[in-house]
Amino acid sequence: MSKNVVIVDYGAGNIRSVARAVAHVDGAPVVSADPDDIDRAEALILPGVGAAADTMENLRSRNVIGPVMEYIAAGRPFLGVCMGLQALLDWSEENGGTDCLGVLPGKILRFSSEGRKVPHMGWNTVEWTREHAITEGIPSGSAFYFVHSYHPTVDDPALALGMTEYGVTFPSAVGRDNVVATQFHPEKSGETGLRLYSNFLTWARSAAFVSFAGAGTST
C-alpha cells in the first residue's frame, strides 16, 4: 500500500498553494477527501482560509471530520495551516461564535482594531518558545506571511511553539504530541516557509512515528 502526503480537500482556498509548496520540497502530494486516502497518509495537512463557520461547514459537508479526528487520535503526524490551526481549537468568536474540533484547548478571538489595521496582513516575526522538529534550522525571529483577522489563544501556554506580536502577543505556531499547526502561511513565506514544510515531512517520517508504519493497512 502506497504511503503519501495527503492534503485534506474540502474546498479551502489555499489548497493549491499548499500542494505546490509540498510538491516543491517533496514531490506531488495527494489532495483528497477520501477516508481511505486519509487513513493511508504518512503525513496529513489541513489547509484553510476564510471564515470559521464556512470552514467547519465545509469540513462537515465533505465528511472529513471523522477521518481526520481518527487520524489525529491515532497519534499520526498532522499539520494544520491558518484555518487548519483555528479549526483544531475549541471555539472561535467568528460568525457569532463557532464550535471547532476541540483537538487542542483554546479559543480564537478577534484582533482589536484599536490603533491597528485588521486583517493582520504581511510578514511578521515568530519567536520560538520551545524546540521542535518543524522549526529545525529556522532561526527564532524569522518572518512568516500572515493574513487573518482572528487570532488563536491557548489555555495551556506549553501548547505554543512560537509567538507573534500584533497588538496582542498570540501563539502563531502550536503543537502537542503528533499535532502541529501554524497561523501563518508557510506556503507564502519563501524559503523559510518551504523549510518548515520539509521539516514537517522529515519529522513525519522520523523515528517518532515509525510505530505507525503501515497503520493504514492494519484494519
Binding site: R16, S17, R20, A21, H24, Y145, E187, K188, S189, G190, E191, G193, L194
Partner: peptide, 8 residues
C-alpha cells in the same frame, strides 16, 4: 509563477 514562487 504560482508553481515556482512562494511569496504572495
Amino acid at each position: 509563477t504560482a508553481d515556482q514562487v512562494f511569496i504572495p
